[in-house]
Design a binder for these strands. Structure first.
Length: 474
DNA sequence: TTTTGAGTTGTTCGA
DNA sequence: GTCGAACAACTCAAA
């Protein structure tokens, strides 16, 4: 079935040539498929840092993808421009019959795709979008009355009841490799510098591209059976570290879900649950785009958060005086990644202890996280802030010290990112201000001089947070 | 339509 | 130190 003479496949956050739904559909429906990627100036020009790990990761992944496509006899046309104009222009120049891509659920991406579809439509071309970044998305998992779920557990039950081998089957892209359009004369890949960026010190920090994803996944599969017991400990290699690859599509979500379903362990089941969360938040954002800018439950927009700039700055810079929070925030700045347990601890601390608007924290994470995904980041923040769908109850407030004792008992993680505390005894590393002054001197960490005193008192701030919520509910 | 059961990841208090 | 209850009702999803 080849309906089209030639088409264009537009790569976005699906940087792989294996098990790619949109690419498969393009190839199956065309005699010849051109491939393109746009380094979008609309996004890149607004980035504050020139040495951006995310751009470096993206660039390396695009380079690898281009190499793979060329090895298969095809090519990847790499454009530095504005996608809204560049894609319709490229489609016109190539004279293709249609454009294919994979669907994106973020409001800005949806607006971009609508603009591109409209521009293509004016020339009589269609934009075909395929589901690729989720196992189930949008309207596939619904309640019995046909409405989208807003509570996770029943959503997950329905998800698990519906999923079968069909939904996690790989799209055999290689079957049609001969339909890839051959390299264009003079085709090249702009360097990072040509895009206006410079390589960050230490590179992107994570092995990029499909090869990087494959290596991480192979390593994780061996640890998957123990995932349930190890995933909450930031000093332990327990999680998959695949989030950035899920962000850029350098590995297929179907592949991950298939392995999670195949694993018989409790670890596999727990990890599958995390993949279901990813789908859950995609569909939440799709159906409730207002949550991208405000509380899912609009009544909580009425809370006037009293926390000020100085507290926000201390949180960002990892100098709140609460070791686990500071270590987490410094990990984010140093590596562009933060362990999920710590994302909750740090988010809860900003909102419930520093009483700062959760959107400030969401923004900071969005700017820093290599794996930043609007749906997951926003959903996670709203869960912690108790403003979201199916949120943590507002009176359930993390204690930064007991979380530290539970999930980093020896302070191994803390000491890695807060070297000031390297010699503080285990029993005091979670709350160094409780160490008697003489002993602080002895271990070279005087609180207030070598490491900050706590900028707030947890018990008092907890009461204030409870009062803020109570006032809105009354 | 009404009723019923249930809800990611916690903390604190008092026995 | 360990345990259970309270936190506070509320809304969702299903029967």
């Amino acid at each position: 079935m080849t309906a089209y003479e030639s088409t264009l496949f537009w790569f976005r956050r699906d940087l792989r040539d294996e098990d790619n739904a949109g690419l498969y559909h393009a190839l199956a429906a065309s005699r010849r498929v051109h491939c393109a990627f746009v380094f979008d100036r609309g996004i890149l020009d607004g980035l504050p840092e020139r040495a951006d790990r995310r751009v470096a990761f993206l660039h390396a992944s695009v380079a690898e993808l281009r190499g793979r496509l060329r090895e298969a006899g095809g090519d990847l046309r790499v454009v530095h421009g504005h996608a809204r104009e560049a894609i319709p222009a490229l489609a016109a120049r190539l004279g293709v019959d249609a454009v294919f891509a994979n669907e994106d659920y973020e409001p800005a991406a949806r607006a971009r795709d609508e603009a591109v579809a409209a521009a293509l439509g004016r020339d009589g071309r269609r934009l075909h979008l395929a589901k690729d970044q989720a196992v189930f998305a949008k309207d596939e998992i619904l309640t019995r009355s046909g409405t989208p779920f807003t509570v996770f557990t029943p959503y997950k039950r329905a998800w698990l009841a519906k999923v079968d081998d069909f939904y996690v089957k790989a799209y055999p892209v290689g079957r049609y490799a001969s339909r890839l359009a051959p390299p264009a004369p003079g085709s090249s890949l702009p360097s990072l510098e040509a895009l206006g960026f410079e390589p960050p010190a230490g590179g992107p920090g994570v092995a990029a591209g499909m090869s990087g994803a494959q290596a991480l996944f192979a390593d994780f599969l061996a640890r998957l059976p123990r995932y349930a017991e190890t995933r909450d400990f930031p000093a332990v290699k327990g999680v998959s570290y695949l989030s950035v690859h899920n962000r850029f599509g350098t590995i297929s979500i179907r592949r991950l879900a298939a392995e999670a379903r195949a694993g018989a362990s409790e670890g596999a089941a727990t990890w599958l649950s995390e993949l279901v969360w990813r789908d859950f938040y995609f569909q939440i954002l799709w159906h409730h785009p207002h949550a991208a800018t405000g509380s899912f439950r609009r009544e909580y927009d009425a809370i006037a958060w009293p926390g000020g700039e100085d507290r926000l700055a201390a949180w960002r810079e990892g100098r709140t005086g609460y070791p686990l929070v500071d270590a987490a925030m410094r990990q984010l700045t140093a590596t562009g990644w933060m362990h999920n347990r710590l994302r909750m601890v740090a988010a809860s601390f900003l909102v419930k202890d520093l009483l700062v608007d959760w959107r400030q924290g969401e923004r900071w994470f969005a700017d820093r996280l290599l794996d930043f995904d609007l749906a997951a980041n926003n959903g996670g923040w709203q869960w912690c802030a108790s403003t979201g769908c199916d949120a943590q109850p507002w009176f359930r407030i993390f204690n930064p010290v007991s979380q530290s004792q539970r999930f980093d008992p020896q302070g191994r993680f803390i000491r890695r990112y807060v070297p000031e505390l390297a010699r503080v005894p285990e029993a005091f590393v979670h709350a160094p201000w409780t160490l008697p002054p003489l002993e602080q001197q002895a271990c070279g960490c005087v609180v207030g001089r070598d490491y900050p005193a706590p900028i707030v008192e947890h018990a008092a701030q907890r009461e204030r947070a409870l009062a803020l919520f109570k006032a809105v509910r009354a």
